[in-house]
């Protein structure tokens, strides 16, 4: 096939230079998604009336709308919100230099937060009620029982699901290329602007994504295998 192979080789380091941004976007989004999920999960598990129903409804809506639409909504709507917040608590809105990266993080955190809420709730519920009783029986306080016995078990139970969502998120960050975040895909496209070797640019991007995904997948599989002795103990009874 008629491809510019020399350019592809040249292009690899250029596109690779955007890898930190893709990973940064992934980990930032993951962090805020987990924070969101834990907060939502606590409200649902604590059975806080109204708030619980509201959050369940909100999650259904978030999960029912394409991520791309949410991303564009954040991209368009957040500047309005920031402008409205101008002057509030000394915040100064700067329309010249919007942080598209942060907008994308907000969109991913909301979307994946909704999915991970289910993980938080189901993992917590997967820990047997008897474990907390046992903690009480040796004289632990509710706080000690929660943080020493129940939550560590819930975390271990949630890890396979979380690693799945991590892989999805890693790939989903490519969507941020449509909202001016120069991660791998956008960088690849831009690098071909002068020589029309568009396909070559996308091939390079694909190969880099593939390599990164395979590496992370192997790493997470390793982690999961290590944890599985532990997990069997917790889940099988």
């Amino acid at each position: 096939m008629n491809l510019n192979y020399a350019f592809m080789l040249e292009d690899i380091p250029v596109v690779l230079s955007a890898l930190p941004r893709t990973l940064g976007l992934t980990f930032c989004s993951l962090f805020f998604a987990i924070v969101t999920a834990v907060l939502f999960g606590i409200c649902i598990l604590k059975n806080i009336p109204v708030l619980k129903q509201f959050l369940i409804g909100l999650n259904t809506v978030i999960k029912g709308i394409p991520l791309m639409v949410q991303l564009l909504l954040c991209y368009y709507a957040i500047p309005y919100l920031l402008r409205a917040a101008d002057g509030f608590l000394g915040y100064v809105y700067n329309p010249k230099n919007p942080s598209y990266f942060a907008f994308a993080v907000v969109a991913f955190a909301i979307n994946y937060g909704a999915y991970m809420t289910d993980v938080v709730v189901s993992s917590y519920r997967a820990v047997e009620r008897g474990q907390l009783d046992a903690a009480y029986s040796v004289g632990m306080t509710a706080f000690q029982g929660m943080f020493r016995i129940v939550i560590p078990q819930a975390v271990v139970i949630s890890i396979p699901n979380l690693s799945n969502y991590f892989m999805w998120l890693l790939k989903a960050t490519s969507l941020a290329s449509v909202v001016n975040v120069f991660e791998i895909l956008a960088t690849a496209r831009m690098s071909t602007a002068n020589n029309y070797a568009i396909l070559e640019g996308y091939i390079v991007a694909a190969l880099i994504y593939w390599a990164v995904c395979v590496i992370f997948e192997k790493g997470l599989n390793c982690l999961n295998k290590k944890m599985s002795r532990y997990r069997n103990d917790i889940v099988v009874s």
């Binding site: 009480y136 029986s137 004289g139 632990m140 532990y230």
Partner: peptide, 30 residues
């Protein structure tokens, strides 16, 4: 509760702790 101990029908051992930790947990933490 700290004056009582309990043995459960389904054993109630902490599944995320080894046998040794199960026994020492109450001693060190409580």
């Amino acid at each position: 509760r700290r004056k009582t101990g309990m043995v459960f029908q389904n054993y109630g051992l902490f599944k995320n702790k080894t046998v040794l930790r199960n026994i020492t947990e109450g001693l060190t933490v409580v």
